Computed example of a mutant assay.
Amino acid sequence: METTTALFYVFSAILLFAAFRVITARSTVHAALFLVLAFFNAACVWMLLQAEFLAISLVLVYVGAVMVLFLFVVMMLDFNVDALRQGFWKHFPLAGVVGVVIALEMAVVLLGGFNLADAPAPTPEEVQLGNSKLLGIEMYTNYLYPLEIAAVILLVAIVAAIALTMRRRKDSRYVDPADQVKVKKADRLRIVPMKPEVQGSSAAAAAESQATTGGQA
């Protein structure tokens, strides 16, 4: 057995174990950490297939951003895990059957596209450039317009998400930055002249003191 084949079986076994522990772990933090382990092993499998761009994208996007954010959310919020796990083993056989059917369907679809006999052999120049550089050249030459359209769609999605979270609500306090910039000193501080007033026992003491002073005079 070659080293590449042995590493593929090792990474695949760890990947399957981690994926199984994601849905069976009792702690949500442990489940998220097992999912990080699964992503790392999937990236290693991509590296064995010489798909460096997909491997580094999987690590940077999912492990470095999505899963870290998910871990922070899980650790900050108090989830009732027992309520979420009610009926898990009752529905597990049906979920397993559905998962096997989906896996078989994906295998049937994908195996038809992996006809290595018809695949063109890479040229020495392509081998020297590497997978990531060739992918970049292909994206920014033949697929430049679809890439720009996808970028615009993602930008619109980001703006829409910000607009949904920044909508005006009665229970939220919102300050307009433009109003803060245009503020003047007179808007912040206003001096109001007031006459001194004495109330309660202080007024009685002041009246008694004035009466005493008048009598002595």
Rank of each mutant, 00 (worst) to 15 (best):
R173W: 02
Q50W: 11
A38L: 05
M166S: 04
V101H: 08
A161W: 15
V97R: 06
P122M: 06
V36E: 11
D179C: 07
R169M: 10
A161H: 13
P93D: 02
L129C: 00
V156P: 00
T24A: 12
T5I: 10
V22S: 15
V108G: 05
Q216W: 01
Q180R: 05
P120C: 00
V81E: 14
Q128I: 00
A163H: 08
L77Q: 06
Y143Q: 13
P196S: 04
T28G: 00
A13E: 06
L144S: 10
E125Y: 02
V109W: 02
Y62F: 12
R173F: 08
L155G: 08
Q128F: 00
L164T: 11
R190M: 06
V59C: 07
R188H: 01
A95K: 15
M139V: 14
L155C: 02
L84C: 06
V73L: 08
L144A: 13
L49I: 03
L147A: 15
S209C: 02
A31G: 13
V73S: 05
M75N: 05
A119L: 06
R190A: 10
A13C: 05
A107C: 02
E105G: 09
A42Y: 15
Q216D: 13
L84T: 00
L71M: 15
I162S: 08
I23W: 12
A18Q: 14
A207H: 01
M67Q: 09
W89L: 15
L116F: 15
L164Y: 12
R190K: 10
F11V: 00
G130K: 12
S202N: 05
V10G: 04
P93E: 03
E52G: 06
D187M: 04
T4I: 12
S172W: 00
G113C: 03
L164D: 09
F79L: 13
M47G: 07
K185N: 09
V73T: 06
P196H: 01
H91Q: 06
V198L: 11
R167Y: 00
W46A: 03
L154M: 09
A25V: 13
A42P: 01
L54Y: 08
F114L: 15
A205C: 00
